[in-house]
Amino acid sequence: MNIFRFAGDMSHVFSIIILLLRLHVAKNANGVSLKTQELFLIVFCTRYLDLLIRFISLYNSAMKILYIGSTAAIIHMIRYREPYRSTYDRSQDSFRLEFALIPCLVLAMITSLIRGFGFIELFWTFSIYLEAVAILPQLIVLQRYSVVENLTGHYIFFLGAYRGLYILNWIYRAYTEKHYHHDYVVYACGFVQTALYADFFYYYFQSKYYGGTFSLPT
């Protein structure tokens, strides 16, 4: 594992901790998209099906279980626990999951057919596509609230940085490993995923540089 990959994983873990902290500190779920969390839970559950059939390393298994467990916990909090349940604004979080799920499933089936993938690989491919767009509901909620809370802003920043660091990891691996397996589907999705954050990054850094409140143009 190289430094970019490790930094990417840590950025991902960090983003989840920040979201949990944000819920705990603010004692509300304002501006948090439950739909994005649900998409991420589907991403993790479909990608990490291999947990059931093989063991790679303690680090690998621990991270996978951490991602699934923490995302499930966040969803449980917002759906069923007070004060999150009553402060979560369903009407602002109106993204329809099937608009992401169905195209990703169709794309994954086509990709798997072409590449001769089996059952687990099909779901793995589906999760790669779905992860690329999983942040969309959260970005839509953010647009509607306009002013972005500090911790929510940091959460999205570290979540975006995670896939960006993975891109650096792939470049590093391609240069340093002799028999590196190039997966262009993963590359393309990684670029799309990171690009979706570009606009957010721009306003995030601008607010950090100039100070004041962090708001998005409407």
Partner: peptide, 10 residues
């Protein structure tokens, strides 16, 4: 095309 069975990325 083979799936990268050794893939340990998250």
């Amino acid at each position: 095309e083979e799936w990268d069975k050794e893939k340990d990325e998250l």
